[in-house]
Each structure stands twice: as C-alpha cells, then as structure tokens.
C-alpha cells in the first residue's frame, strides 16, 4: 500500500489486514498507562486540513503521536484557490521539507488523488482524510472495525446507510468497503439525496426506512448538513426527521443485535434522537476510539510495514 485514497483500492485481504492490525494495536494499548509505541520514531506526518474538522484531525494526530511520529498540523483557511499558494505547491513544499506522510482533508473531490499524483516522485504517502463529496476511507475502516467488534465477521451482514448519500463521502467509502468485506449494503434516502448514477452501484436502494429496519444488522445514520436543509433537497427538517430520523420507535423495529452508527457530528433530534444516540445499541463513542487505532494501522502499513519494524 503506497497511499490510502479510496476504499475501492482495498481488496478484501488488505482491508482485513488493516482491521486486524488495528485490533492488535488496540489490544496492545489497552490498560497501558503510557500509550506510546516506538514504531514511527523519526517519521514525520503532516496533516493538511483545508476544511474544519476537529475529530478527524485530532484522531490522526493522536494516532501519529501514539506511534512516536512527529506530527505537524497545517491548517489552511478556506480553499487554496485565489488565496495564495496552490495545493500543488503546498504539497511539494511539505514533501521537500521532509514529510513522510501527508494526511489531507480538502473540499474538492479528488484532491487527495491529485496530491498523490504530484508527490509520486517524492515517495511521500498520501492519506485521504475526506475529499469533497468523494471518499473518507479511514471513516469506513473505523466503521468496519466497530461493526466487527459488535457483530464479528461481516460477510452476509446487512447494513443500512441512511440519509444524504448524494453528498456523503462517508457513504461512498462505506459502500465499497462493506461490499469488499462481504456485507450487503442498502441505501435509504429520499430520491433528491441519491446520486443520479446510483443504479449502477448495484446496491438495493429504498426511499423508505421502516420496511428496511427489521432486516438490518447495522444502521448508519448520515449527518444532514445545514446547507442541504436550505438547499431545497427536502421540504423541511421536520419532514426529514419524520421520514428518515432514527427515533426510539424505529430503534425497536431493529433486531435485538443491530448496531447504530453515526460518523458525527450528530444533529440530535434531526437524523437521530438523543435517546437513540445515548442507547447501548449505539456505538458512536466506540467508533471514535476505533478511529485512532484504525489510523494507527493505516500509518503503520504506509510507513513501517515491510521494514521489519513489527
């Protein structure tokens, strides 16, 4: 693995290996007072965030620090365009300054892939920490890690992804990864929040949540962003919540063992009721803590694997 840009690039073996490494790291660190491994000592990891994100940036930073990498955070306000230096120049500068790995969050779909292209001569690894409405592969990995902990092997499991599939990078990464791991995915959304080419994803699509609930082993609630609420994609927040919000009545329609996921940040009372988010069926804080271990595993596989550091 040279970069992590899309979950489409992960075959079942590689994905499973990443998840196994994450589980191993989690077990290793469990109960330790000093949570620090020497694995990436002397390696420099740069996070480049062109969008605000506390949880993802902190998670990557902690992952790097727990493995003793030197982590540098570059936060770029707004887009690179028209505000001085281009994304390409910034990336080349960071690589020339000695970054072994660049973790990038950018509002433009494909930005991570472009970065990997520009850095192809430098040997710098690129991790996509969310590019526009394209992908967010480490989110999908941490979701899969959480589901494995709760459900065991994912093959044959049925996962519902509910909400703004059209604009969600989390949805895209999860559709690919879950299918690679053998799970069945069903997308649930109003027609206005499904991409035009979704038929060719060859996954079941439903406009209604209720009939799907009893069939699901897990349900992943996507965040509804404020700009969608005012963008005319649906009539009102209230109507959306009535049709697609996961409330307590709907929670009872899920099988006993079913898991509730949310990538955060949550809009309580909108796509998820407070009582549901705080129920033991929800794995939302578990997702966050798995995020660190999964990102450690990604950094390990990109920067240390194959060098006998194990």
């Amino acid at each position: 693995m040279r970069h992590l840009l899309s979950t489409l690039d992960l075959d079942a073996d590689t994905a499973t290996e990443l998840l196994d490494t994450a589980a191993k790291l989690k077990a290793t660190l469990l109960g330790r007072e000093v949570r620090k491994l020497p694995t990436l000592r002397g390696r420099t990891v740069v996070t480049m965030f062109y969008e605000n994100s506390t949880r993802t940036r902190v998670s990557f930073e902690v992952a790097g620090k727990w493995m003793s990498a030197d982590v540098i955070n570059v936060s770029a306000g707004g887009s690179s365009v028209g505000k001085g230096e281009s994304l390409r120049d910034t990336a080349l500068t960071l690589a020339a300054a000695g970054a072994d790995c660049v973790i990038v969050r950018h509002p433009a779909s494909g930005a991570a892939q472009r970065l990997a292209h520009w850095l192809s001569d430098n040997g710098t690894a690129v991790v996509n920490a969310g590019d526009g409405t394209h992908e967010h592969p480490t989110q999908a990995l941490l979701d899969a890690a959480t589901l494995r902990e709760r459900l065991g092997d994912l093959s044959g499991r049925r996962v519902g992804i509910v909400g703004d599939v059209l604009h969600s990078r989390v949805a895209r990464s999860n559709v690919h990864l879950l299918r690679t791991l053998g799970a069945e995915v069903v997308l649930v959304a109003p027609p206005t929040l499904l991409p035009a080419g979704v038929d060719e994803w060859k996954v079941p699509v439903s406009y209604e949540l209720d009939p799907e609930l009893p069939t699901l082993d897990a349900v992943m609630m996507l965040r509804v962003q404020a700009e969608r609420m005012h963008g005319g994609f649906f009539p009102s927040a209230r109507e959306y919540s009535i049709a697609y919000g996961l409330n307590e009545a709907r929670l009872r329609m899920l099988p006993e063992h079913a898991v509730v996921l949310h990538p955060g940040p949550m809009l309580r009372g909108m796509e998820i009721a407070s009582a549901v988010a705080d129920s033991p069926r929800a794995a939302i804080t578990q997702q966050v803590s798995n995020g660190v271990h999964v990102r450690m595993a990604v950094l390990y596989h990109l920067l240390a694997a194959g060098e006998g550091h194990e």
């Binding site: 779909s109 409405t133 394209h134 990078r169 895209r172 991409p195 035009a196 060719e200 994803w201």
Partner: peptide, 18 residues
C-alpha cells in the same frame, strides 16, 4: 456542476451536469 451527471460523477463525488 463539475461532470456529466451519471455513474462516474456519482462515484467520484463530482456535482452532476445533467
């Protein structure tokens, strides 16, 4: 709009030009 509205744009996360 960034790309022809269809399967490729949907996969790449590019806003469709229908």
């Amino acid at each position: 709009a960034q790309a022809h509205e269809g399967e490729v744009a949907a996969r790449l996360g590019l806003t469709g030009w229908p």
